[in-house]
């Protein structure tokens, strides 16, 4: 972690421990996932035990605690998206990537994950990759999407 960035994040909060979420994001950005070492180090810095850091990191689905693909494809399977065909989208993705949801492609390019409501029901069914939303997605859009992600 760049000390400067850490300091800057810390300076935004009255209590050290409040900086936990942004610092977890920072760790994830740098290493691709929240490493066990990062959990220990964040704890030391913020006056939290490793457990307290792990509780937060595992509570939020956005944090990864294991190494995964270079990009994560999140497919919402909550109510609105399911009603509008999320399952077919998942199936098509699994087929094209050759892995089941929750797994990473052998070339390390993608991890496919099912997700709860991504708060974009108005464009259901929804896929999120990093900060970008795609929707409504139909199974036949998948190839073009993957193409874009591979090149982008």
């Amino acid at each position: 972690m760049k000390e400067e960035t850490v300091q800057q994040i810390l300076s935004r909060y009255a209590h050290r421990r409040s900086a936990l979420l942004p610092l977890l994001h920072l760790c994830q950005e740098e290493a691709g996932y929240v490493t066990p070492e990062a959990i220990g180090q964040l704890g030391e810095r913020l006056g939290l035990s490793p457990t307290q850091v792990a509780e937060v990191a595992t509570f939020y689905d956005m944090f990864r605690l294991k190494p995964g693909g270079r990009r994560e494809i999140w497919v919402c399977h909550n109510l609105s998206c399911s009603l509008l065909g999320a399952e077919e989208v998942v199936r098509r993705l699994e087929e094209r990537l050759g892995v089941k949801a929750g797994e990473t492609t052998p070339d390390g390019a993608f991890t496919l994950r099912r997700f709860e409501c991504l708060a974009a029901c108005e464009i259901a069914p929804v896929i999120q990759v990093g900060p970008d939303y795609y929707g409504p997605v139909r199974p036949e859009d998948i190839d073009a999407l993957l193409e874009r992600l591979r090149n982008g």
């Binding site: 220990g40 939290l48 490793p50 457990t51 307290q52 792990a54 509780e55 595992t58």
Partner: peptide, 27 residues
Amino acid sequence: HHVLGIAERGDRSVVIADDGKPLGEST
């Protein structure tokens, strides 16, 4: 001591020691 906690949420919630270590290897 803050060694024990609850990881995950909903029906995946589970008691953990440290970041999910076996208790004997935890703090």
